[in-house]
Nucleic acid binder design. Structure first.
Lengths: 187, 187
DNA sequence: AATTTTATTATACACATGTTCAATAAAATT
DNA sequence: AATTTTATTGAACATGTGTATAATAAAATT
């Protein structure tokens, strides 16, 4: 039997395309299911067959971006033979460059009208990435709490970056991050 | 002239009360404007005179909670004669106790269906409170970035706390916070 | 190529949204 | 107490939501 029905692929593709096209004109929370279906020439009932609301359609796209975040983060590891997880240099993380690359979408993610769901997707991803590096430094019980602290601290910088309308470059953000970490260590 | 029209006070009060009462049965995102107005015996048009959507009504209530957060945070300061802003002991912060107190509402705030707006209200408040303490440690330009880092780090712990369904006590959270900070300083 | 499976469509329904308007009633002002 | 001001009401309207149904058409299977 076939893995996926071609009709579903076609329908989802059309809806994705329609949404992305409409996002050039309107913010996410102003786009209705009806309008997307009109644009995509897909029956509204079909939309509800695959998604529950507009945000679910966008979420599917956002998950693609989360994949790129993982790839970006992993990138520095590619250049070393042995994986020294515990010793990743903060100056080599690529998170800020990733956000800069998808600036357009992070403006949506950080919009105040958008549900928390996207933020949590992002949080989970950063959390998971950092977790590789802070293994064993804390005992298991508090590990989650520590990585939640660390991951969300970085997201705090991105929130502030977003509020400053991404004025700083990704490299400047990285330097700032290193500076803040150094401050923490030395005090 | 009168500061505020009594009719407005009455209307807003009835709507607030209706929403809070309905929140015992349903999550925020399942409560419609129509249902609130039915419950409050207020015309739907009147609702739209004061609020744009259900979330705005809840936001007004949440701002009250933000006031309590400030009061809670300030509490330790009351017991010292001279305000030594720069030297607040992390073990004396009352943020976790405040969240524990309003647990019921923070479950709403951290729900994935709720707009980012509340998170930002919380972020701003914690940010502002911490800002008093980290004055002058960084030069003005990066001060915002540093406090955003710090404030959101704490919110990260609260997110994780919420995910563990507030199993830990506020005091345990405070101890963990101190432990994490110590780890940062020593390394 | 014929048959089976199932995604899509068209249509309809009850309900919610967001806005507008004239009529009303409640509060503030004189 | 009479008058002015304005918040509230009731009604209507176009549009959106979410769900359900039978008819259709497209893909998968034989």
């Amino acid at each position: 039997m076939k893995e996926i029905d071609l009709r579903i692929v076609k329908t989802k593709g059309a809806l994705q395309e329609a949404l992305l096209s409409m996002l050039k004109d309107k913010p996410l929370h102003m786009i209705s299911v009806t309008a997307i279906c009109r644009e995509a020439k897909i029956n509204r009932g079909t939309f509800y067959m695959h998604y529950g609301k507009v945000e679910d359609l966008f979420e599917e796209y956002f998950k693609e971006i989360m994949k790129d975040l993982t790839d970006s983060y992993m990138e520095p590891y590619k250049h070393v033979q042995i994986l020294l997880s515990n010793e990743l240099d903060p100056s080599t993380i690529r998170i800020f460059h990733h956000v800069e690359k998808y600036k357009k979408f992070y403006r949506i993610i950080f919009s105040k009208y958008v549900p928390m769901a996207y933020y949590y997707l992002l949080f989970d991803q950063v959390n998971q990435l950092l977790n590789q590096d802070i293994d064993e430094k804390h005992h298991a019980e508090n590990k989650n709490m520590f990585s939640a602290y660390q991951a969300n601290a970085i997201l705090g910088m991105i929130i502030e970056w977003h509020r400053q309308d991404f004025q700083k470059t990704a490299t400047e953000m990285n330097n700032l991050f290193v500076e803040i970490l150094n401050f923490h260590f030395r005090k």
